[in-house]
Design a protein around this nucleic acid. Sequence first.
DNA 1: TTATTTATGTCAACCGGTTGACATAAATAA
DNA 2: TTATTTATGTCAACCGGTTGACATAAATAA
Lengths: 327, 327
Amino acid sequence: MNKPVKLEDVAKKAGVSKTTVSRVLNKRGYLSEETIKKVHNAMKELEYRPNVIARQLFKQKTNLVGLVFPTVNNPFFGQLEAALDTELYQAGYKVLMGNSQNNPQKEQEYIQLLLNHQIDGLIIGAHNDQDVQYKEKNLPIVSIERLVSSHIPMVGVNNYEGGRLATERLVEIGCRHIIHTNYPPHEESTNGQRRQGYEDVMKEKGLPAITYAVDFDWPVEEKKKVFEQIFSEHPEVDGIFADNDTNAALIMQVAQKYGRKIPEDLKIIGFDGADITKVLFPGLTTIQQPINLMAKVAVELLEQQIKGEVIEDSVQLPVKLITGVTA
Amino acid sequence: MNKPVKLEDVAKKAGVSKTTVSRVLNKRGYLSEETIKKVHNAMKELEYRPNVIARQLFKQKTNLVGLVFPTVNNPFFGQLEAALDTELYQAGYKVLMGNSQNNPQKEQEYIQLLLNHQIDGLIIGAHNDQDVQYKEKNLPIVSIERLVSSHIPMVGVNNYEGGRLATERLVEIGCRHIIHTNYPPHEESTNGQRRQGYEDVMKEKGLPAITYAVDFDWPVEEKKKVFEQIFSEHPEVDGIFADNDTNAALIMQVAQKYGRKIPEDLKIIGFDGADITKVLFPGLTTIQQPINLMAKVAVELLEQQIKGEVIEDSVQLPVKLITGVTA
DNA sequence: TTATTTATGTCAACCGGTTGACATAAATAA
DNA sequence: TTATTTATGTCAACCGGTTGACATAAATAA
């Protein structure tokens, strides 16, 4: 097992000092063409690869950004993390993954780990309703679709408008008994705003608003049980506005088990509109979030903070109704 | 902007030396209860957080594992990376993401970056057919579903059997004009083995084998064009074995545009069987890969290598036919 | 009482880079 | 010819931890 080649070895080989090699690497100061060539040759010959860790230690910069999301195994978060990775790569950063599976304790642990790793910034998003401490003083942070604290900028969508759009559509195509699935219950959350949109429209139309709580990270079977309740407790239901597309898909499965024909007997609208969903379930009517744009904006906000700007404002992006065949 | 607290500050506060603090952190050598308490108090008071970078530099170990996959925005890879992240976290590693989007050049770049970051190991998988250099002498590597080189252990599934299972099923339920979509064309690839299974069964049944090439990373519209060709060039087609589930979903969309009823006029089988796919497209008949198990085994193989064992053998896991309504 | 063992802690070199301060030779100006 | 500028390169401290070698006080054994 040969030891890794270090800068000093290159210097020796090229017959110059460590500093000179470092200067060639970083293109600093005066260097003659000849020296540069000598050093490059030595590097090539020895297959030298600079140890980023050492540089990070001195520079106090890692070019690492931590991502804290519940999971990557989900159409919305998968696309979001993929887009973030792409944007961050272009901006010169690499991604340290931190998928918390919506477990607040694991999330807290992850944050600690990421901070110990001296990340330059953090992008977070999770449906957690429990508080997690993010009060690291000087760490640039951006949250996506999650209100963490007032002084952390958030990139989100107009969830209220999304809730309205979906509900209005259902009413427009004839639904009178519209049920909404949502979680968590408190109003300040992004999901709470979707529910608010739903409730306001229902009120305006003089229809009763009924919401079933379904936690994001429940196992599929657990969720299905709740959806079955909908049909047993409210057999009159003729429209469902689900808080996300996978729930919409599950509801459709349950509805079919109960003999409902979609869209004849029951109309369904989801939320998210991720690329994968459009491929696997093209018929789903949904409120589409501009996922790639959200990633782009989030990275921009993060970069500005890393450059030292103080940003506390949030950005709200538009949503769009995509009509398929389910509503 | 207050400077970050370092070990020395803790030492000063606790009235001991740097070494003592480090020993408390690492639980080495003899320490009195009193000293430990003093140090812990000082750490708490100063909100000390050890700088992992410095430790990494000295220890020559980062506890970082690089992941090189085409994208995380895909049911199969999303679930795979999520499972890898979970397994690696349990084993004490964090994940550095490297999604290459199947661009060999970007992949090569990513590898370099990851190596510069002194990762302890690498897990790779991509549908690339172009060669990428992975000949880092001492770096533990595991590949998933991708033949990289003979001395890199691979975790894969029995693709040949998968090809056979799918084709046999289609024949069994009455198909006689079965078309296969696949990429890349050469035999040694995992996809090549799926095709081989398909071709062997077709041959045994005295049926003609026809394969359409569809690259994994083509845009959706490009893929659909090829699928349309299938119906215009082979209107007699009554069964399709797609090389993955998203292609199966796209084929279904195209088929419906051509007026084919599924499964009456055309039967379709996919490949992968990821969790998301089962939720969004539960009716799809597919060959399911044990994705979570693959991740588990891959991490085990990687850990063994990190511990110094030399492993060159590959592991082949079983696949399973999951019957939905499409075939 | 003195020698040996155990408990507790410090010193200083090291991991592999970066960079400000400085030295010297070559080129140009006075 | 001497003074100044420009080109080229070296020295050594530093980033923030870790650890082997060593010192000393306290406890125990002879």
